[in-house]
Design a protein around this nucleic acid. Structure first.
Lengths: 207, 207
DNA sequence: CATTATACCGTACAAATGTACGGTATAATT
DNA sequence: AATTATACCGTACATTTGTACGGTATAATG
């Protein structure tokens, strides 16, 4: 879907989506204004007018929080896929990807998490396949045996996390792969986040 | 969870859940009052006080539509998983699993889509595993190669759908399984719905 | 018999909410 | 040079919204 929304309009729309996902309901004009530092609700009002005119939302007049997302399939919440993981390769982050996918509401993801598309079959032993979307939360401290997205020497990996007293181990589901051991003082290593869910759309053919 | 809610309180709670599911957000006091024919919002206010006191909801003071459902699992909308598919077995629909509260939610699932939990590894060739949740839409006409949930001779199957001029074929991902052929006049066959998505939570350990 | 919980009513009010009207400033288009 | 779209401001106002206070009536409980 081509977006003829301006940058600011896009930001506002994203904020609305974000609020809907985390709070379960769209924000009020005042909440939007406050978030963007506007001194008047009128400014928001005018942006919403523009966004509505472009067909991205529909508003129920006089109804509080009456912003409906037009692009949203009734039971699906759109959320941008911000990048790709293909194990072994650098973590690709799309520049300004408004490549939203329709995530089912059951996969109700916390606002602070993001989506990555899986490429390659390096995760097939974890039952995660090319095209699957993984939901990554960067604000969770990983517990042992959880899947994490990590960047090690500029290459991305998705592996099970195990913390030992002196090091961190990254295990693969497939025993043929060696365990990656990260010593405590190793600097070129970063946990990107914890994988909290996997979603796969079946609409298009998989096989 | 035992319910010590009164009949009316229960009705009001159900209405709130219903509104949340259909409109995406909880109602205002006025909307509740109008639905139940109350002449005052105060009446609703008092019922909500009671319901909150009993721990079923939590309210954000002063915030419009600030009714939170306490019973709602953090990452899941009140949309319940209504049954189980274990290929070869009858389609299990949970009777009224989670006590009075979940029941109305179940009854009110938008006819549009529902959730089934997958049991057994009969679908592993389609990369769907035990514990996964499939999202099924009964109102879509299946296209060729889409996964469908079907009931054939009282046993549930989840297979790829292929319509031929004179029959319907149900294919398995695993070529070792025979293709099921349903002749056009066969009666004991019903397409339950099209599998539109698979969701797997990674929060608890998978392996 | 007094108390408590339930189930309603009305009146009142501050704050929140959506919206209208009018204005300024910049950039792009015609 | 005139117009249009964008991006803000301020003031104003009728409703909506949540909430408080006070009252009535019934049924159940101690």
């Amino acid at each position: 879907m081509a977006t003829n929304l301006t940058t600011i309009q896009k930001l506002i729309l994203e904020f609305i989506i974000d609020k809907k996902v985390t709070d379960g309901m769209p924000p009020t004009l005042a909440e939007i204004a406050s978030h963007f530092g506007y001194k008047t609700r009128t400014t928001v009002q005018q942006h919403l007018d523009a966004i509505e005119k472009k067909g991205f939302i529909k508003r129920n007049p006089k109804l509080s929080r009456g912003i409906e997302l037009t692009l949203e399939d009734k039971y699906f919440t759109p959320k941008p896929v911000i990048g790709e993981v293909a194990a072994g390769n650098p973590l690709t982050i799309y520049p300004d990807a408004i490549d939203t996918i329709a995530l089912p509401t059951i996969a109700r993801i916390p606002a602070d998490s993001f989506l990555l598309k899986v490429k390659g079959d390096s995760l097939k032993d974890a039952y995660i396949f090319t095209g699957d979307i993984i939901i990554v939360n960067p604000n969770i401290t990983p517990k042992n045996s959880q899947f994490v997205v990590a960047v090690l020497d500029d290459a991305a990996v998705v592996k099970r996390f195990y913390k030992k007293s002196d090091r961190i181990e990254l295990h693969s589901e497939n025993p043929e792969f060696d365990v990656i051991i990260v010593e405590k003082n190793y600097t070129n290593f970063k946990i990107v986040g914890v994988v909290v869910g996997v979603y796969r759309s079946m609409e298009k053919k998989v096989g």
